[in-house]
Structure formats: structure tokens, C-alpha cells
Amino acid sequence: MKSLEELLAIKAKMQDKVAVRTSSGDIRVVVGMATCGIAAGARPVLNAFVEAVSKEELGDRVTVTQTGCIGICQYEPVVEVYEKDKEKVTYVNMTAERVKDVVEKHIKGGKPVTEYTIGAAKL
């Protein structure tokens, strides 16, 4: 069994990290998780972001949150990336595979993946 000792070790490690955090992160990734999003595949998209943040140790800079329906259901799964002092980027028709690109190029590299944005989607 995943032991409670293991959880306590994570706690000790996390407490140090959280203590030195200066802000709640400069980048906020928001995944739409209403019926439209869930039906279109938002759950694996959200999980892919959470996994990537954990694996790449981006927790200091990036927070992943959920939201409801933002009204563009036909483009779900929709992911919005908010970055301080920058314009919001809205990604549409997201998949776990696309998340890898977004993490690599946008979150880590600072350059939005234009081809996945709502601007590039056929309206």
C-alpha cells in the first residue's frame, strides 16, 4: 500500500517548497470541466497538465485550476492560459498529446502554440 509514511515525506518536502514560494505562480492554466468539457475529453487534458507540472517541477510557477462552461462548447476541451502582464491564450480542441506541446513550448518556452489557439480554429 502507498504508505502514510510516504505521504508524510511528501508533506515535509512540500512544506519547505511552499514556504519559499513568493507567489501562487505567474502562470495559471484553467481547464473547462462542465458537461461539455468532460464529454469532449477534458479529464485526460487536466490530468496531463497536473502530471506535467509535477514531473517538470513547475509547481512554483504554474497553477492548474478548473472552471465551468465558458460558452464555446463546440471547441471543448478548452484550456485558458493566464500569464502576468500578457494577453490570455485560449486553446481549443485540446488533447493530452497537445498538452505536451503547450507545456514545452508555451509554459516552459514562453511562446504560445498558435496552431492550437481559438484564433487558428475554423470559425
Binding site: 500500500m1 508533506k11 518536502k13 509535477s54 492548474v64
Partner: peptide
């Protein structure tokens, strides 16, 4: 167990994930 730490911390979520999968 975790006190003030948020359960949404990715490391903690992964522990929860593993804990449930083992069950």
C-alpha cells in the same frame, strides 16, 4: 495528516492517485 497543504498540489495528487490505484 497534511495540515495546511493543499490537496491540489501535484505531488499530493499523485500520491492520492497511487493510493487509490493500489486499492
Amino acid at each position: 495528516i497534511l495540515g495546511d497543504l493543499s490537496l491540489a498540489e501535484p505531488e499530493i495528487l499523485q500520491w492520492i492517485d497511487g493510493h487509490l490505484r493500489e486499492q
